[in-house]
Design a protein around this nucleic acid. Structure first.
Lengths: 143, 143
DNA sequence: GTATATGCAAAGGGTTTGCACGGTT
DNA sequence: AACCGTGCAAACCCTTTGCATATAC
């Protein structure tokens, strides 16, 4: 998160307090929905509006400082792009989300590239399923 | 799609024309959002309501006749559960979606099971990224 | 006949947009 | 000074819900 301002400028965007606040909120929360980002930002600057969060996230994502993935079936969660790309294991039984290294994706990414010419966006990957605990207790997460 | 009615009954649900229409619409469209399912159903029965589509899909999913996955960043798409489990490769550049056999997931599923005790819901898997064409033409899909 | 399912309309959550004002360059 | 970015409110899309009626069992 050193050259964040340079990245924005390089794409023709301006440096604003709101954009910096959103970026550091995304860093602080390791995973955050727009709502959660808003709450985190408002701890430091209460006047910031939700629509600003959305617009800031959009810009930060475009310049490559932030990504999102779809954990849970609802709102996307955003996270900072750092050296350690990770993927998410969401449990449909208890709702917990585990982050693991994206290394496990390597063979699959390679074979999709070779077979299909398809480039997987690894940072976007989220698996659904059931965690060990829910598998053992038979918790299906169904109503 | 032979024992669909038995499956419903086994779970205490009734057999209704709407549920049959929704199920066959999901079969016809190989991937369909609720809206698309509604349109397909209404080709045969114009009076059916959107809320009925949602409720029917929910029931069909619970009894194991239908699954969904999150292709695109918007509405989920539903597809019938058949013998050939497949996964989706969505292209963020041109928006196309390719279905491929889920066999490619086998090694990864096995290693998550062994390492983490985590059971991936394979039918739910959708990767985002870029198809061959968009990789070659540099189409990033960004506005 | 009784409980479930449907249609309709209204409410709800999340996200986007138009506009006037304020801040960055 | 010019333009981009923000706050606010309204609009929008997708999905869910309450209720009276219709239907499957």
């Amino acid at each position: 998160m050193e050259d964040w301002d340079r990245r924005l400028r390089a794409h023709g965007y301006r440096i604003t307090p709101q954009r910096q606040l959103v970026l550091s909120a995304v860093y602080t929360l390791r995973h955050g929905t727009p709502d959660e980002v808003l709450a985190e930002v408002q701890r430091h600057a209460s006047g910031v509006n939700l629509s600003t969060i959305y617009r800031a996230i959009e810009v930060l994502e475009e310049v490559g400082l932030v990504t999102h993935s779809h954990i849970g079936h609802g709102a996307p969660t955003y996270h900072a792009i750092d050296s350690h790309t990770h993927i998410h294991l969401a449990c449909d039984g208890c709702g917990t989300v585990e982050s693991i290294s994206a290394d496990i994706m390597e063979p699959l990414v390679r074979s999709l590239r070779a077979d299909k010419g398809y480039e997987v966006d690894v940072s976007h990957v989220a698996f659904h399923g059931r965690c060990r605990k829910c598998v053992e207790t038979g918790n299906s997460g169904k109503h």
